[in-house]
Design a protein around this nucleic acid. Sequence first.
DNA 1: ATATTATTTGAGACTGAGTCTCAAATATAC
DNA 2: GTATATTTGAGACTCAGTCTCAAATAATAT
Lengths: 138, 138
Amino acid sequence: MSVVRLLKSYNIRSTRQRAEVLAGVISFKQRHFSSEDVLSFLTQKKRKVSRATTFRTLRLFSKKGLLRSLDLGKGWAIYEVAVDSPHHDHLYCIKCGKIIEFEEHQIERLQDKACRKRNFRSLGHTLRIVGFCRECQK
Amino acid sequence: MSVVRLLKSYNIRSTRQRAEVLAGVISFKQRHFSSEDVLSFLTQKKRKVSRATTFRTLRLFSKKGLLRSLDLGKGWAIYEVAVDSPHHDHLYCIKCGKIIEFEEHQIERLQDKACRKRNFRSLGHTLRIVGFCRECQK
DNA sequence: ATATTATTTGAGACTGAGTCTCAAATATAC
DNA sequence: GTATATTTGAGACTCAGTCTCAAATAATAT
């Protein structure tokens, strides 16, 4: 699907800048990226999108469900493409920076249970485990 | 236990400033507080501790295990006193800001299992569920 | 005690991710 | 094509947090 149509299907007005940002993040080799990553990628590729618009657009995409905004405790947002990727949690290696995605159905169920028990209406959750990946323990 | 002795027992050199910060956070009515909260509390109480030292000290206490640094996705650190309080996770109400602590032993166990399965050595984790508390759903 | 050595502190400049402003540019509706 | 609504960009600004480095304080040795 073209980026323009993808934007439309997510109810986002299509503009040159938004198409550039979307094409950029889709073509990214890295699955996880910061706003600065996207900005410098676009700048390097001579795709002119301003700083304000890049940040704004990533936030918008995140709100509309095209991207997912993660909080890996770095002090700034990390994004991942949400299209065709179900919810999952993250292992974050503090040595090499690797991010390992994982899904544990049972954990999700227990979280729902914990919320119900306390009359809490969950809108979403973040589960991040930090430590050393297989390679960085050697 | 006096704050000076508490510091010593955590292997932290005692200074006037550190004692002020510790006494401050212990006497706090709020269980969860930001660095700015502590700074303005001390300033208001005429306990002179500089901005740099306040931030440094909270970071130090957190590293030494006196405090625990939470990441509630606010973009800055939130602390809680760790002494006499076992690890737990948090429900965060985005409407009223209330923080509800909870413990689910089983979730912890499943997390350990998920790490073992992937040869990941965990140093800690953050589980934060955001949504609406009982009162804020009305 | 006193001198020596090591650590901590404070004022204020600095950092860096992210936001705001507002006039100009662009997109959509009519 | 014109009117209306939205988006964009340059660059100033915000704000939590860090850095610097000389002065102050604490621990250690004598």
